[in-house]
């Protein structure tokens, strides 16, 4: 289900000393099945933005349409929207509360008032999808490691079978291996379930490899919106925002300066292909 944000503004604590214009005139269309990376510095408004998508924050002005319907309409069910636009927050500690992993994952589908069999089915499906092994089903979620907690938190949202899955910094605080595992798993889920995924991150390296589209935010407004290649070609502007393109982009840049026919590459894999390409074709050098 496509989501459209139309001239959305959001102001925190309006009329007080803490007033902050967190979102400035956001216009975005999020079509079905896209894998989107949302990138920005801390405080750039990315977390605020995603909370608008499932109605947890109400825009100060502007409208948001989910599948063509204005979500601020009186007869629009926010509860229904939240089960269709699943949002996983940054800290799994904020949502894990049950005594066992399975019970915790059940919370979402149970809130949807589904029949018991369906709840069980979705729960086990979701736990399997995130790669939690069977011996942990009855473990307390509080005893798990950071990466496992995060998987359980993601499963808790996946169990509602959302059409759009939003993940707020799913890799924060994980070691490189845990990070890659989780991101690979998310990419796999995205492909298999054919759902829209919005991955919020401040690390370019993380997202460049996976996403079809990158949205860069700075000071509450969208600065760039395009394929990773397009966005990373603005690496100078990205640096001014305190972000950086993946290192490999810089390597290619330097090579180009030295006179090599280097194109744009956003992942090591792409760069390798390209470089091997010229080595095979020596006349170009």
């Amino acid at each position: 289900m496509p989501i459209v944000m139309d001239h959305v503004n959001y102001i925190y604590s309006a009329g007080t000393a803490y007033e902050k214009h967190a979102l400035k005139d956001i216009n975005l269309t999020i079509p079905d099945g896209q894998f989107i990376g949302l990138i920005g510095h801390t405080g750039s408004g990315k977390s605020t933005l995603i909370q608008h998508l499932n109605g947890l924050i109400k825009a100060s002005s502007g409208s948001i349409y989910f599948n063509g319907r204005d979500i601020y309409d009186e007869d629009f069910s926010m509860k229904n929207l939240r089960t269709r636009v699943g949002l996983v927050f940054q800290y799994p500690e904020h949502q894990l509360f049950e005594t066992t992993v399975v019970k915790d994952v059940e919370f979402g589908p149970k809130n949807m008032k589904l029949p018991k069999l369906e709840v069980n089915l979705r729960t086990f499906e979701a736990i399997k999808m995130v790669g939690i092994s069977e011996e942990l089903y009855d473990a307390s979620p509080f005893e798990l490691s950071g990466g496992q907690k995060r998987r359980v938190a993601i499963a808790g949202v996946l169990a509602m079978k959302p059409e759009v899955l939003i993940l707020d910094e799913p890799t924060a605080g994980l070691d490189p291996m845990g990070r890659d595992e989780i991101l690979d798993q998310i990419a796999k889920i995205q492909k298999e379930q054919k759902i829209t995924v919005i991955l919020v991150s401040h690390s370019m390296e993380d997202v460049a490899k996976y996403v079809d589209r990158l949205i860069v935010m700075d000071h509450g407004s969208v600065q760039f919106d395009g394929t990773p290649k397009e966005v990373f070609s603005h690496y100078k502007e990205l640096e001014n925002m305190g972000l950086a393109a993946p290192q490999v982009t810089y390597v290619m840049q330097e090579l180009r300066k030295k006179g090599f026919p280097a194109g744009e590459a956003t992942t090591v894999e792409e760069a390798k292909k390209e470089i091997l390409g010229w080595i095979g074709d020596k006349r170009k050098i």
Binding site: Q51, L56, F89, Q95, F107, N111, M160
Partner: peptide, 16 residues
């Protein structure tokens, strides 16, 4: 602030 965040996280899972 923490309460606010937790409530939001549970609301995102359909809590009412």
């Amino acid at each position: 602030e923490e309460t606010d965040k937790i409530m939001k996280a549970q609301q995102a899972r359909g809590a009412d």
